[in-house]
Design a protein around this nucleic acid. Structure first.
Lengths: 225, 225
DNA sequence: GAGTGGAATCGAACTACGGTCCGGTTTCCC
DNA sequence: GGGAAACCGGACCGTAGTTCGATTCCACTC
């Protein structure tokens, strides 16, 4: 069944999926969340790895071509030349697959936020870091909003990077304004960066990206002044 | 098929669905939205009215008994002794049915907000009205959160009372702080009152209602001070 | 390096659910 | 009573997600 033609049929050459970053993992543990379950297990069988890559490549291709919510899971499985069971065992559900596709980018973002250069990373005043966080998030949403909306479909708060974002924002808020209910306000701020909301503002209400950026900055400054 | 037993089998005695309030309608029009389509049409046939009542009663019963997202549309149709087609033609989709079930309460809330007594209604300072709005919304969510979450499932921003809430909040914000981007901040504030988020905070994170109330008030005051 | 036991994985058939369609029936107005 | 419009409801469709027997792979032995 595995022909020579599709034995290494992955056009995305993201082959080094095995790379880990212990610093990020530690930071995530410290923030009290589990790691996202989108990686390969420690020892992955060769056929499983091949199928995982083929599924991700097929999904990326179809999403790109047709739009995220015009593509069924059956279509992805067929395009990847893989059974449905394989698809779902690998990624859990549709949201898990979407999460896997944005995971690399989100990891990089978390990395920059935790240990990158100011103003996003440590060193800058907390208000500036918060502003930079929102801008970075809005940029990611601009590029991958549909996908992230699909990843957040079931419950945004439960899975994915939400708890980590929440914890990081809360830390900054406590630093900048100790009197504040940091966890509550973190949820409030993150609500502004919900994929569904931003997509609606951008495409249905026609608000330009700069307006969202300015709005975010003003919101943060007003809260922390 | 229609037996005497279920001919008027509606335990909810919301029989006067025909009552209209032109003031509210005008206000809603002024805010640029359409009216919610959950009413009976102007002239409803007798069998249609009977079936609508039976569907609403059945849904209420099953939702109460089993929890909102443990009840399928088939089950509601069966419990109401009605075909699936009838159910969907009447209410459009699952969200529409849920909206119909909270509609009366939301209308009352909109009414109080537009023309009721202060601090919710006109007369109080805008900041106080905003605080009261959030508290009222949180109370509704406390009582009917699951149902409202179901009503918001597809796109919160597009359907239901969201546009009206948004417009009203924006008016208050402009009054209290003309320099603010009122539409943007209205979305931000309403994000805090999203049914999904509040349910998560209340039941999964165990935050007490008073904390959400205090958090909301502090958030509004900080923004407008 | 070939063989083997057993666990991990594969994938097509299956279930359940939301939503649509359309021929037949009921209701209402005249 | 008659005709047209509105309505009814069950069969039907596409999709997300599950199951489980068949298959593939890998570690270990000889």
């Amino acid at each position: 069944m595995v022909t020579a033609e599709n034995a290494h049929a992955s056009p995305t050459d993201a082959d080094e999926t095995g790379e880990r970053c212990d610093a990020i993992e530690d930071a995530l543990w410290a923030s009290g969340r589990e790691l996202p379950i989108v990686d390969a297990p420690a020892r992955e069988r060769a056929d499983a790895a091949r199928n995982r890559r083929r599924i991700l490549a097929a999904a990326e291709r179809l999403f790109d071509e047709l739009g995220v919510d015009q593509v069924s899971m059956d279509a992805i499985a067929a395009e990847a030349r893989v059974g449905k069971g394989t698809l779902f065992r690998r990624f859990g559900d549709r949201a898990g697959l979407a999460r896997a596709l944005v995971d690399e980018r989100e990891r990089r973002f978390q990395d920059e936020f935790i240990r990158g250069a100011p103003p996003l990373g440590p060193g800058a005043p907390p208000a500036d870091r918060l502003v930079a966080f929102g801008i970075g998030m809005l940029e990611i949403l601009e590029a991958r909003g549909e996908l992230i909306a699909a990843a957040e479909r079931r419950s945004r708060q439960r899975a994915g990077p939400y708890p980590a974002y929440c914890a990081h924002i809360a830390v900054l808020l406590r630093e900048a304004a100790p009197a504040i209910d940091a966890d509550f306000v973190a949820d409030a701020l993150l609500g502004t960066l919900s994929a569904r909301l931003v997509l609606h503002q951008r495409h249905e209400r026609g608000m330009p990206l700069e307006r969202l950026v300015d709005g975010w900055e003003d919101l943060v400054r007003r809260l922390l002044r």
